[in-house]
């Protein structure tokens, strides 16, 4: 394991860059996913169609293809940004489709009778949404949304492999190709780095699930 211990500072830097990718993507995909989910449940047909189109497209395309589109397609259109920007953008676009589906499924899981009862009590649209539908939807959303987000954490490695540079994956690449270390110990180090992110995230998700779970 000496290649890992000798280069621990590189690993720590890589770990932090990976975390940065994850945090930006987390904020982006939650916001965008919420907007797309709102489109999908809206009463306006063209918005629904747009939401369906978005979800179908990004759910069925590999993340890698979304990334090459961002990184090689957008410059062709005169949009020039860093690879980091394109990488995070691709991850956000891809994950937003899954986030939107998780949220929509949660809203649809609330029995229609709940909203009907709320309306017959005289609650308006926003009150029905805020006090009756969303609190119940939120509980159903947590488990699937959690697994979507953990999958996204792991997919940050794909963004790294794509050439963002400086993240955990790239650290492994540099150590093996440029410095000639053996691949096995170096990538065990990389794997441990990712496990340090995903395992606590998974445990946290379980705690939250247990907190919000309701028997229906």
């Amino acid at each position: 394991m000496s290649p890992v211990l000798d280069n621990l500072d590189l690993y720590v830097d890589g770990f932090l860059t990976s975390l940065r990718i994850i945090v930006y993507s987390l904020i982006g995909c939650l916001l965008l996913g919420l907007i797309i989910a709102a489109c999908r449940v809206s009463p306006v047909p063209p918005l629904r169609a747009f939401g369906t189109f978005w979800v179908t497209t990004f759910r069925n395309t590999p993340l890698t293809v979304v990334l090459v589109f961002c990184a090689f397609g957008l410059p062709e259109l005169g949009i020039n940004r860093s690879f980091f920007f394109f990488g995070v953008l691709g991850l956000i676009l891809y994950t937003s489709a899954f986030v939107a589906e998780a949220i929509r499924a949660g809203i649809n899981s609330v029995p229609a009778g709940q909203a009907e009862a709320a309306r017959s009590l005289g609650l308006g649209f926003s009150l029905t949404l805020r006090d009756v539908v969303l609190p119940q939807a939120l509980r159903t959303v947590v488990p699937p949304l959690g697994s979507v987000l953990i999958a996204m954490f792991k997919n940050s490695a794909v963004v790294g492999a794509f050439g963002v540079g400086g993240d955990l994956w790239s650290t492994g690449q540099i150590l093996t190709s440029a410095r000639g270390y053996e691949t096995l110990p170096v990538f065990i180090g990389v794997a441990i780095g990712y496990l340090l992110i995903t395992l606590p995230a998974g445990a946290l998700l379980q705690v939250i699930e247990r907190k919000v779970a309701i028997a229906r």
Binding site: N155, A161, W169, G172, T183, F187, Y194, L195, L199
Partner: peptide, 23 residues
């Protein structure tokens, strides 16, 4: 199960393709 589920697939593919070859 927890180990393999917690790793990015791209890392596992790297192990499959490169590490297996190297060892």
């Amino acid at each position: 199960v927890e180990l393999f589920r917690g790793l990015p697939v791209v890392v596992l593919v790297y192990f499959g393709v490169r590490v297996i070859d190297d060892v």
